[in-house]
Design a protein around this nucleic acid. Structure first.
Length: 698
RNA sequence: UGGGGUGUCGUCAAGCGGUAAGACACGGGCCUUUGGAGUCCGCAUUCGGAGGUUCGAAUCCUCCCACCCCAGCCA
């Protein structure tokens, strides 16, 4: 392994640029551009491109990056988007200085270039309709055929083109086409359209134009006019590069270099404008800036910082292979950033009341709490403590499982920055729900340290009941339940991937008093709970709402999950987790109850047939061999995870064999297949190895 | 069956003929008044596959396989 002596490793684009610099290709200039079409909001995928383009420019002496709106299609674009895009780029921390450009500013110049091409016999006016053009373009494997108008004379073309500009023809009547090669293996080269007639006013040029340039024609010209050295775009434009080059070469003008990289895909979300717009329009989210959206405005409202997003874009790298970045990396980046800067506060999200019996009735103590252990300069604050406090419901268990360090009857824990308390009594309501706890405190442990050196395992956050600010807190989770929702084969399936629990609203949260004065946009760490930002849209004076940005890493949750998993497989197996919670209605498992798990009869089954069930979008019908001579029919609500049931055939599964057969609308279901949810994905329990149908599983 | 791309750890990603960086995730230890943070350790005998060239191949050659993109008067 050679030591990387020269600088640090760079991506392939930076290598190309370094090489160009070395050969003095552009006289030492580096100029890039970020060219959004103003027809939607920017998302994290755009952030990757923004960071790339602006950072590359910044890395070189004299390098600059332009912000250019590619506004060549007046029917799709709106001013609202221009403003949001400018705001987002700025917020991300990048500066285009005085280089804010619009493709529409070059329309006249482009027009002149078009006449130049016509005069050179390299472009012609075609009278064919859109349909005719499509039909004569050929297919991927067959060449196209030439337009009957292809060989018009230069004068006629010029005249027609000028009349197109003058408004002499209705929409669609004519187009200007480049005269290249109708049998070119690259479809983009089969006489591509350069101009179309659109009698639509443009948000910047008004009614000055009724012909508008197409992307392929316009983009290279924009780059050339601005003197861009490296025109960086995404992979799907790779096929367009020959055309980009063709136009520029034919014109004999300055010729930037187009370089393509793979766009960002993020797990558990979608990135296409169309899909994002769909989520907004169909009301799955409240808007483009909904905190669940991967848009820059959504992330901002969620509590993400520009620094975290930039670090993320840096960490994911730049390459040409299609990839899917784990959203856990994004979460890591925001945690890392916020850990250093977010002030800590105490907030009880799901309150459980505690009365400290031996604490003086009317005493209120102001205790010191550290604002940020990572940053001594952040100082300390006072937190009021009194006889009645709230702790998190989840921080008490009447019957604590193994490794549970928190409060339980008879247990002593520390209240952060306050006292050790011991649980002496539990008050429940009629339904058996724990309503209130009684505890005693040890006055000697004020501040949280025991003079006798005794230790407690758990430290809980708390809020004094009398001083608490009651507030709404919104808990956000991923928008989709599957890693790659875009892989859905149709709309219905796509919709079924949407996470119904992506937003949970908590109305009765108890916050420490200092949080009452939070300004919109301020970010805090609620100790032990996560990072939260004061919402900047729905907050009202005196009534601040908080959005959860991301949870803290939760070791206990992991342990508990592992325990449950262990129970599932060891103890009485079952617990029949099959899809039930995840798929909503679970026609199979719902009514089946087994009091004693030891009675469950688990058997090896081999799936012999599997298919979809007509009229049930969650079910799959399988025929399972349990070695009984006949196959058993089982309906399992696992379609979400197995879109192609055929692939289940031959798999060994665990079947609960001694259930009472259940009559369903679609037929008799004679058993149940074990399935579980891991990492958010539903899957059936399966295994390799030589086992025979009907073998007992233990 | 045309053209253009891409295949290195679960996920990103270095590597450019000298014997597989790093990050996230995951597992484990230490530490801890956040089961947070921090810290330490582990985690690809192998680079889509098969041949070949070479003292030496993820890197070069040949063939094969898989995946992505392209038939808007969208960008």
């Amino acid at each position: 392994m050679p030591i990387n002596d020269s600088a640090f490793s760079t991506d392939f684009i930076r290598s190309i640029i370094a090489e160009d610099l070395k050969t003095n290709k552009n006289n030492g200039r580096v100029m890039t551009r970020f060219p959004p079409e103003p027809n939607g909001y920017l998302h994290i995928g755009h952030a990757k491109s923004i960071c790339l383009n602006f950072s590359i420019a910044k890395e070189h002496r004299g390098g600059v990056c332009n912000l250019r709106f590619d506004d060549t299609n007046p029917s799709k674009e709106e001013i609202e988007y221009i403003e949001s895009i400018k705001k987002d780029v700025k917020w991300l921390g990048f500066d285009w200085e005085d280089r804010l450009y619009f493709a529409s500013d070059y329309f006249e110049q482009m027009y002149q270039y078009a006449e130049q091409l016509i005069k050179a016999g390299a472009a012609y006016v075609d009278d064919q309709s859109a349909d005719e053009i499509r039909l004569t373009r050929g297919t991927l494997t067959e060449p196209g055929t030439e337009s009957p108008f292809r060989n018009r004379g230069v004068e006629e073309n010029l005249d027609l083109f000028r009349r197109m500009r003058a408004g002499g023809f209705p929409n669609g009547a004519k187009v200007l086409r480049a005269k290249i090669d109708m049998s070119h293996p690259n479809i983009n080269m089969r006489d591509p359209v350069m101009y179309r007639i659109l009698h639509t006013s443009h948000h910047r040029t008004g009614d000055k134009w009724c012909i508008y340039p197409m992307y392929d024609w316009a983009h290279g010209l924009e780059d050339s006019i601005e003197g861009i050295t490296h025109s960086i775009c995404t992979l799907e434009f790779e096929d367009h590069r020959p055309l980009y080059d063709w136009f520029l070469d034919r014109l004999g003008v300055y010729h930037p270099r187009q370089i393509e990289f793979a766009r960002l895909n993020l797990s558990y979300t979608v990135m296409s404008k169309r899909k994002l717009l769909g989520l907004v329009k169909e009301g799955y989210v409240t808007g483009w800036d909904d905190p669940r959206m991967p848009t820059i405005s959504g992330l901002r409202r969620r509590g993400f910082t520009p620094e975290a997003i930039r670090i993320f874009c840096d960490k994911i790298g730049v390459a040409k292979r299609d990839s899917m970045v784990d959203v856990a990396l994004l979460e890591h980046c925001i945690r890392e950033d916020l850990n250093k800067r977010a002030p800590r506060r105490m907030a009880v999200l799901r309150p459980l009341k505690i009365v400290i019996d031996n604490y003086p009735d009317n005493l209120v103590e102001e205790l010191d709490a550290v604002n940020n252990p990572e940053d001594p300069a952040a100082g300390v604050r006072k937190v009021p403590f009194s006889k009645v406090i709230y702790i998190e419901q989840d921080d008490f268990r009447e019957d604590p499982p193994k490794k549970y360090y928190r409060l339980a009857p008879g247990r002593e824990v520390r209240l952060r920055y306050a006292y050790f308390i011991s649980c002496t009594g539990v008050i429940k309501d009629e339904s058996g729900e724990v309503r209130e706890l009684h505890c005693t405190y040890d006055p000697a442990t004020r501040g949280g340290d025991a003079p006798d050196g005794r230790k407690v395992q758990g430290t809980l956050h708390w809020v004094s009941a009398n001083h608490a600010v009651t507030a709404e807190v919104r808990l956000y989770d991923r928008l989709f339940t599957v890693e790659n929702p875009s892989a859905a084969k149709d709309d219905a399936e796509y919709r079924s991937f949407i996470n119904p629990d992506s937003l949970q609203v908590l109305n009765d949260c108890k916050l420490e008093p200092a949080l009452g004065e939070a300004e919109p946009g301020e970010i805090f760490q609620f100790e032990r709970m996560g990072y939260f930002v004061a919402d900047s849209v729905d907050s009202r004076p005196g009534r601040t709402l908080f959005n959860r940005t991301v949870t803290l890493k939760d070791t206990w949750a992991k342990i508990e999950k592992a325990q449950v998993r262990k129970q599932d497989s060891n103890v009485a197996k079952d617990k029949e987790k099959p899809a039930k919670h995840e798929t909503g209605a679970a026609p199979v498992g719902e009514e089946i109850t087994i009091d004693d798990f030891s009675k469950v009869d688990l058997r090896v089954g081999v799936i012999r047939e599997a298919g979809l069930v007509e009229g049930a979008d969650k079910l799959i019908r399988v025929m399972v061999d349990l070695g009984e001579g006949t196959l058993r029919q089982i309906f399992a609500a696992i379609r979400r995870a197995y879109h192609e049931p055929e692939k289940l055939v031959g798999k060994q599964v665990v079947v609960v064999a001694n259930l009472k057969p259940r009559q369903m609308k679609f037929g008799l279901s004679e058993g149940m297949i074990l399935a579980g949810v891991g990492k958010g994905a539903l899957s059936i329990a399966t295994f390799e190895g030589k086992l025979s149908p009907g073998d007992k599983v233990s």
